[in-house]
């Protein structure tokens, strides 16, 4: 790992002041489970690391005006163990348990999960976020078995790796970020972007902004996450579905969000529309699963994900209703 300066501020303002306005000069250190590995592999070589560890304001979970506020540096294990989270947001608990490692969730943070970099092996091997070699992406004709089946017309083919984002989007959550110009609120649904060149990152925040809190409305939505995995150990899922809806005699306000199928968490309006107005039963859930595959365009080696989307959406809906 290249040498760097370690900064350990105690306030958000001091942390923001220590950050550069271009990506990669400085990095924000939360849990470090992704960043430290990325630095060892030379994927990023910052001259300064800004640790969030000693900023007390970024820790903890509290109820506020009908919402749950989660400090961005709250660990994933603390989040999964919180009584309000367990009672109201099982979609988040399932997503955290799915990570499959006590060691990772003890240090990994809620904010860090949203900003971890993709697992695309071309990216991790140094070919950049778009997997480009000699002016051309290696991915469409390469080993793309874990890549995108939606939003993959190019130039990006990787999948968003966040465990929490699909559930947070389904629940209508937002993130408060602080930068030079003060604080602003971004819907989690708008947090991830698809870069058009290798100099960009895949987030809608600026390099010198810091996520400080996640806000989830507590409005009684039924919710669940269903993950399809190769194994129940430390790994990323193949496909996930998070759903939230308002239960009544018939369903309304459905949000179906897929993970690991597109460069951004993938909101399926077709699946949401298919469930709205229905009684929840196996047939309605299966129809929503079918609808969720509309528009899928698998690459050469990931056609299997289409069937997994059907199953994940169906099972997430049935789990939310259970």
């Amino acid at each position: 790992m290249k040498d760097f300066e370690y900064a350990n501020p105690t306030s958000v303002k001091a942390a923001v002041d220590l950050l550069s306005d271009s990506w990669g000069n400085t990095e924000v250190l939360a849990g470090g489970t992704d960043l430290i590995t990325s630095m060892k592999q030379g994927l990023t070589e910052p001259t300064r690391l800004v640790s969030l560890k000693n900023i007390k304001k970024l820790q903890g979970i509290s109820k506020k005006k009908g919402t749950l506020q989660i400090g961005a540096a709250t660990t994933l294990s603390a989040l999964a163990a919180n009584g309000d989270v367990q009672q109201h947001f099982p979609a988040l608990v399932t997503a955290i348990e799915g990570i499959g490692s006590a060691q990772m969730i003890n240090v990994g943070t809620a904010g860090g999960d949203l900003f971890q970099r993709p697992r695309c092996w071309y990216f991790r091997q140094g070919y950049g976020l778009l997997g480009v070699y000699e002016g051309k992406s290696l991915i469409p004709e390469g080993d793309n078995r874990y890549h995108a089946i939606f939003g993959n017309a190019g130039p990006a083919y990787y999948v968003n790796p966040s465990s929490l984002a699909p559930a947070l989007i389904a629940l209508g959550a937002s993130v408060s970020v602080v930068g030079d110009g003060g604080e602003r609120e971004i819907k989690v649904a708008d947090l991830h972007t698809t870069p058009s060149n290798t100099g960009q990152r895949e987030f809608s925040i600026e390099p010198n902004e810091i996520a400080v809190a996640i806000t989830i409305p507590m409005n009684g939505l039924k919710n669940a996450t269903y993950e399809i995995r190769q194994r129940r150990g430390l790994d990323w899922p193949l496909v996930t579905a998070s759903v939230a809806f308002k239960a009544g005699s018939i369903v309304s306000g459905t949000n179906v969000v897929l993970g690991h199928v597109a460069p951004v968490p993938w909101r399926s309006s077709a699946a949401s529309a298919a469930l709205n107005g229905k009684f929840v039963n196996a047939a309605a859930a299966a129809a929503a699963g079918e609808a969720a595959t509309r528009g899928a365009a698998p690459l050469s080696k990931n056609g299997y994900k289409v069937q997994q989307v059907k199953v994940a959406v169906k099972r997430a809906i049935l789990a939310a209703n259970a």
Binding site: L29, G32, I36, T37, Q103, M104, N106
Partner: peptide, 14 residues
Amino acid sequence: RIVTACLVLGVEAE
């Protein structure tokens, strides 16, 4: 809490 020491910086152990 258990952690993997390879992903924690020495300076973070203050």
